[in-house]
Amino acid sequence: MAKISGAVEINRERCKGCNLCVVACPVDVLSLQPKEVNDRGYHFAYAAYPDKCIGCASCALVCPDSCIEVYRVVEK
């Protein structure tokens, strides 16, 4: 069976840590940085469990700051 794998690229400086992508992700890939902040002081989002990503782009769709890019491959 084909396996779908995805990956996200998050612009950490544009991210405002609103957490909406974390909530939207159906496979719990994303999380906010618990301690680290970006230049503007936000706990930015990052792929805490990147292997689980299916490249569905749910995170990017709801991101108000358009700081997530999504990649997807179908492995045969």
């Binding site: 794998s5 995805g6 990956a7 690229e9 792929a47 990147p50 292997d51 990503c53 490249g55 782009a57 990017a60 769709l61 358009s66 700081c67 997530i68 890019e69 999504v70 990649y71 997807r72 491959v73 492995e75």
Partner: peptide
């Protein structure tokens, strides 16, 4: 697959609007 291998231009499915 390694996420860095997935992040190739041909695999991009969502980007910031031009």
């Amino acid at each position: 697959m390694n996420p860095e291998d997935i992040k190739r231009p041909e695999n991009k499915v969502y980007s910031r609007p031009e």
